[in-house]
Nucleic acid binder design. Structure first.
Lengths: 234, 234
DNA sequence: CGGAATCTTGAGCGGCTTCAAAACCTGTGG
DNA sequence: CCACAGGTTTTGAAGCCGCTCAAGATTCCG
């Protein structure tokens, strides 16, 4: 919590996101190649629905490049953004199971992206041969669970402004680009609000306030974080 | 959603909850005995903290009898009830992983309970020998994730009364006892509200309203569901 | 230039929470 | 048996955060 936020990502080491994927962690290099070789490599155009919530879990995906939104649509038609998927992230974990439950969220690529795709039966075979895969999947699922629990806790105890601050800073760390001393985050007010469980109007008001205080700058579809330390504490 | 709620549980078949545990699903009977044999069997008195949130994941637990609360304490000291653990439920899943993340919630047995306990190294060995264990754990984790996502969705879109209705009915199905035509649920107003993310006062008011409408009856630490169909729709 | 998103700002309101205080239930111990 | 203390429940009153609705300004793209 005390670490300085905002400094991140694309700055230093250009690690291969696929080789560093948590999903393949602890697996020797040659085995990793074998596993990746069993996948189909596909390029997806932007605005492409990859996974439909509730559908049968037929494929496992590993994002190699690009960006995708992982979201759920509630019964009332409201769209809940669960997570931004970045290179190295896997999705469709349900497909690892023998008699898989349906996908529980939808995934849509936000820009042109590349993915590895495994068929259900194929990934089942692999997970039998290389149990480390299932272990990694379990670790990832528990991580999701933890971040979900934290979000839920924040929603219940923190106020809207606090949640927005946390969400924005996390977004900056995960998906921000450091340009000329500011962290650029590609996100609309509505998407940010959605990630923080705050309505769009309240989100706009808070952002405007921060802009007046010189903590951020706004463009269309983009937020520049100038002084993250002005956000955390109000 | 259209199935009649409230009829459940302790009525008919007295299945062994341990043998039916999702955690041991798909494992042949003799292997199951072997796995259970590797565990320590313990009896825990009520009001006993079993897992401390944030602690190192040193043990895996399987609840054989009794009842336990799975909860989290937020930074502001508010206690969030995540789930009631019933016979057949496992907890401490993080201990299945080689280099485990810390426990992310606390568990406290609500009444005298019996549990199987595995040490970290032991359960790691077992999961290597019997990969089905990890698969089951993954399935359980994904299930938790789904129910968490649903709760979150309800919190954002539904109103307090609706959430309370859903929560109460689900509690009745999971942990209710059918006595003389009513489902008895052992829960205080505060605990119910906590499970539905509603304050205690609002919870009391809604319950009182339902009582006046003849849908439920209230005792101290207990709710009797008389007419569940009067709750779902307002 | 037109049109479609996105963003801004204001006004009003409503559902829940918060605070206060009292009634109630239940097990305990004198 | 009664009194007491602790937790639980009830009810009222007040207030505020964030949502909803309306209407305009701005930016971007074809």
């Amino acid at each position: 919590m005390n670490s300085v936020p905002g400094m991140n990502a694309t700055g230093a080491a250009p690690h291969d996101p696929v080789a560093d994927a948590p999903f393949l962690s602890g697996i020797p290099s040659h085995t990793r190649k074998l596993i990746l070789g069993a996948a189909e490599y596909r390029t997806l155009p932007g605005k492409n629905m990859v996974i439909q919530s509730g559908a049968k879990a037929t494929h496992l995906f590993l994002l190699a490049s690009g960006k995708a939104r992982y979201y759920r649509v509630t019964g009332q038609g409201k769209e809940l953004l669960l997570r931004w998927l970045l290179p190295g992230d896997v999705f469709g974990l349900a497909s690892l199971l023998r008699n898989p439950p349906p996908y529980m969220g939808s995934v849509e690529v936000a820009e042109e992206s590349e993915v590895y795709v495994w068929k259900h039966v194929c990934v089942c075979d692999l997970s039998l041969t290389y149990p480390q895969i299932t272990q990694n999947a379990l670790r990832i699922a528990l991580g999701y669970l933890a971040s979900y629990a934290e979000r839920h806790g924040n929603l219940v105890t923190q106020k809207a402004e606090h949640r927005l601050a946390h969400t924005l800073i996390r977004l900056g760390q995960q998906a921000g680009q450091l340009l000329s001393g500011a962290v650029h985050v590609d996100v609309t007010n509505e998407q940010l609000g959605n990630s923080a469980d705050v309505g769009m109007f309240t989100t706009t008001r808070v952002l405007k306030k921060w802009e007046r205080q010189g903590a951020i700058a706004k463009k269309r579809n983009k937020i520049l974080i100038l002084a993250p330390e002005k956000l955390d504490i109000d």
